[in-house]
């Protein structure tokens, strides 16, 4: 026994892993071939099938009405996300606060807005006047200062912003809360021991570290939001999709118009993907693992793999 253990390495001490033969990967090559065949077929269909109507796509891609619809879509995304993030941070702080009333109020909010479909919430805000014909501003249970007609106040745009933003707040709250909880409690104690105020500890120590856990899922949320704004076409707000729909309802070029819509959504989400990867790098300062670079998806051999 002992001799074999000693003999095995001694036999080839001049060998060097530098010159070792790499493993062959026949299955990798075969699967790549299959994918290539499918890709070639897809390209052939895209080019030869006239139903795609590429000339129509190209003509409408930069049409003024479409670009204006895209503007509405982007504006809705930005405003709804800003509301969602601000609301999310507030709700998350309430959720982990020492005050039990705040905790359960935030919990109730999240339960309601995550538990009902966004589409229903949108239609609900759109029809708010059926529930509350007038909105009053004044002291609760006391005198009313001004009163507005709900129908004039809640335009389709405001209904869309409220519906998407309030709903987003519930999801962001859970993301932010998860991020805050992932920071070592010793960090807060170190800040306290230095005499820092809680607000400063949150802003300078906890949140920047929580960001590493908050940014990636928030990037997902933004990309979901870009697409979720398409829901507002049900309340006749002329976003990208609604504009395209009203065009193909006239021209019956349904597929080309949907392709125009898809191309624009893809363009926007691609830009967001790049932006996200830069933000992730920023918040990974001092971390052991670097955030994946934007170009990583082009790498054939995964980084750091031995194969």
């Amino acid at each position: 026994m002992a001799t074999t253990v000693q003999d095995a390495p001694a036999a080839g001490l001049e060998l060097d892993v530098r010159n070792a033969a790499h493993r062959k990967h026949p299955w990798r090559w075969l699967s790549a071939l299959v994918v290539l065949v499918f890709a070639a077929q897809l390209v052939k269909m895209l080019v030869t099938n006239d139903n795609f109507g590429w000339d129509v796509v190209w003509a409408w891609l930069r049409a003024e009405s479409i670009v204006r619809g895209l503007g509405i879509t982007l504006m809705l995304t930005v405003v709804a996300m800003v509301i969602g993030v601000v609301l999310g941070v507030l709700l998350a702080v309430c959720r982990i606060s020492a005050n039990p009333l705040l905790r359960s109020a935030a919990g109730l909010y999240i339960w309601f807005f995550r538990g009902t479909p966004t589409l229903v919430q949108l239609i609900f805000f759109y029809n708010l006047s059926a529930l509350l014909p007038k909105l009053n501003i004044g002291i609760p249970f006391g005198p009313v200062f001004t009163s507005v007609d709900t129908n004039t106040l809640i335009t389709p745009l405001l209904a869309a912003i409220l519906g998407l933003g309030l709903n987003e707040g519930a999801y962001m709250a859970e993301i932010v809360r998860g991020g805050l909880l992932s920071v070592d409690p010793g960090q807060r104690e170190a800040g306290q021991a230095l005499g820092m105020k809680n607000s400063r500890i949150m802003k300078r120590i906890i949140l920047p570290q929580a960001m590493r856990f908050i940014v990636p899922p928030t990037g997902n949320q933004v990309i979901s939001m870009v697409k979720a704004t398409a829901l507002v076409s049900v309340i006749a707000l002329s976003d990208l999709l609604y504009t395209a729909q009203s065009i193909y309802n006239r021209t019956f070029e349904t597929i080309p118009m949907l392709i125009v819509v898809c191309l624009w959504y893809l363009a926007v989400t691609s830009v967001l993907y790049v932006v996200q990867s830069f933000i992730e790098r920023h918040y990974n300062r001092g971390a052991r693992h670097q955030a994946p670079s934007f170009w990583d998806f082009l790498r054939i051999r995964p980084k750091g793999s031995a194969a």
Binding site: A193, L194, K197, Q209
Partner: peptide, 26 residues
């Protein structure tokens, strides 16, 4: 109040077993 307590803590330094340095700062 918490803010007044924070102000009084500044005279007391503390060094922890796990260091508790802020990892995102130099």
């Amino acid at each position: 109040s918490p803010n007044e307590i924070a102000r009084r803590r500044k005279d007391i330094g503390m060094v922890f077993q796990q260091f508790n340095l802020f990892p995102h700062m130099t």
